[in-house]
Design a protein around this nucleic acid. Structure first.
Lengths: 348, 348
DNA sequence: AGCCTTCGTGCAATCGTGTGCACACATGGG
DNA sequence: CCCATGTGTGCACACGATTGCACGAAGGCT
């Protein structure tokens, strides 16, 4: 032990105070080792004698020590935090997405920092706060994000994934159900059931999710020489869809015998209107088809025919993309489509 | 400028690399100032000349610089992150709570780190991860947390608030609706409507939310010389409640003319059973009352009479408690009850 | 016995920001 | 003219963990 003795104590004041969180330094002092050794005890791949590791872990357990994820993040320049920016919590589809996202991410040791976009609000305003927290990636769903803002994320090296929405920007990923195909599949099915007067209840017409489904639906109808009879806005909400239905089935309208809705919440609104305010029978007089396959769709009093969005697979896909960084190629290459499935129940 | 020149360059290598996030140091180099000056430009209460501050903010804007919340958290020992631990995302009441929580917290510049407890799971397993992230407080809702675990949080100085659940632990806060009062109010109302054979559909009987409502309900009945005819478990779910209803209204049962359910989801399940599988009319033959006042309760085809939980006020209360640290006194003092309100619609 | 490799640990710098202290300079009062 | 008071800025260290490098010890090989 002829090592130079440094001129001052490298751990000058005892840092053990009651009521504060223990740090690696506290453990190090108690065991007479360096803080770096504490680190290594918690790292699977570090070289450290098994005996010492066990002593450290035991003491950590006793003192309630856990390495600080904040300090680690600073050093590693990875926080393990994924920002989830989400609007429209009123549609049960999105809480379901949220739940699945959270569960899947935790399996890989990552956390969800949630940002709810207030109804009618804009994700842009949130982005400064999102970026301050040095999140590893951003997932946006049911919300708008301007192109300058997603560029800002790009400049900072933060990958962005849109869930259930497609944007014409090759620098961000998009993960969707194959909306257009499924729209066509619905048309196909309805025509096969001898429906001849189909209508569509849309969400916002500037959102890909709605327009893709609509385009597919019209294409499917056209393939059988038919055309859409009516297209009304339902604003993605139950109340909006009831309103829309009252317009569709108001007096003096063409006789509609099938309604395809851009989501389940609206389909349930349409059903509600038909049952309470008309004498039309579902499905005999009018077929109703939704999209998403939310939990309520399967309830026996609804028993809604709908398109199932494969939430688990879509999220697996999105999480896979997070780890790839930012898309390299064209708009088409930045899009991932996961196949949906038509679920036949009692309304069509 | 006769200041001593230090023996080495304090900012040795130029740190401006493309593709990386700009830091205070990058700005400092560009402007020839110290990094601490950059900090001060972003702090309202720091002394700094207005002119220099403007120059700094302008450059920050141009370079896309934002102070790192991670580094700041390390220094200040406050992260501004609140952990929200939540189970039962299938009940729309909780996403609504989540949304409101997130919006209210952001108003005070704080963020939500979300932990979803998988169905049937336990919050205990999540706590190590929660604590690693040095959250400023933990809010638990619709999930169980063991006493040793909440003690661990206590030792680390992290306040814990239970939302919509009461625990017998004076070291953690609880925020509830005045469940027992409202249970009594429901009984009062039903008896006043000449209901004489009341039943209760419970959630888990080891959760205060259910037992308080039940106790109040029984107390209210007793005040009018009545007793509960039946009490069945609905497991908080729609399917469970349908099942429970089929037992309540199965053949050979006493004639029940009112059902009070521990939440709206179950009340809707009971309604569904009554409408689809019996010839009983609601409310003429049977009254149904729920609890929560979720969005679906107000839909015209449900029009459910229920108890409104004042979500906004409960969350305001919970957030107020977060800032107070940990409760100091008795179990009773650690409980905050916010008054609910009976909402009369068409089912009772 | 001597050399080389492997193992286990300490040292010190680093991540990016916040903050107490010191210092230079300007201002005002006596 | 001198001193007390403010103002604006830099310096250096702290926050808590990670990590490349160095070094001593141990063990295998010839």
């Amino acid at each position: 032990m002829t090592r130079d003795i440094p001129p001052y104590d490298p751990l000058p004041r005892s840092t053990v105070r009651a009521g504060a969180r223990p740090t690696a330094r506290h453990l190090a002092e108690r065991l007479g080792v360096a803080t770096s050794t504490i680190t290594r005890a918690f790292d699977e791949h570090s070289r450290i004698s098994e005996k010492l590791r066990q002593r450290i872990l035991a003491l950590a357990d006793e003192m309630g020590y856990q390495p600080s994820a904040i300090a680690r993040s600073l050093n590693r320049r990875r926080t393990g935090i994924i920002a989830l920016v989400m609007g429209d919590m009123a549609n049960p589809f999105y809480p379901a997405v949220l739940e699945e996202f959270s569960l899947q991410l935790r399996r890989t040791g990552r956390q969800v920092l949630l940002f709810v976009v207030p109804p009618g609000g804009d994700a842009d305003q949130l982005m400064p706060q999102v970026l301050q927290y040095q999140v590893d990636a951003i997932v946006v769903t049911a919300a708008k994000l301007s192109s300058p803002m997603s560029n800002l994320c790009g400049r900072q090296g933060v990958p962005v994934v849109f869930m259930n929405r497609r944007v014409g920007d090759p620098t961000v990923w998009s993960v969707c159900c194959d909306n257009e195909c499924m729209g066509a599949a619905v048309a196909e099915y309805l025509v096969g059931q001898n429906r001849r007067h189909c209508a569509f209840v849309s969400g916002d017409l500037d959102v890909s999710t709605t327009t893709d489904r609509l385009r597919g639906f019209e294409r499917g109808l056209a393939a059988h020489g038919q055309r859409l009879i009516a297209c009304v806005q339902g604003g993605y909400t139950y109340a909006g869809a009831r309103e829309a239905a009252s317009r569709l089935f108001g007096t003096g309208q063409a006789k509609i015998d099938a309604v395809f809705c851009a989501n389940d919440v609206m389909a349930l609104g349409v059903l509600s209107h038909l049952r309470l305010n008309t004498s039309l029978r579902v499905p005999q007089d009018v077929a109703v088809v939704g999209f998403d396959d939310i939990r309520d769709a399967a309830y026996p009093e609804n028993s809604l025919t709908t398109v199932r969005q494969p939430v688990r697979e879509m999220i697996e896909c999105a999480i896979g993309l997070l780890d790839e960084g930012r898309p390299g190629g064209s708009v088409a290459q930045a899009l991932r489509e996961v196949p949906g499935r038509l679920v036949l129940r009692s309304t069509a």
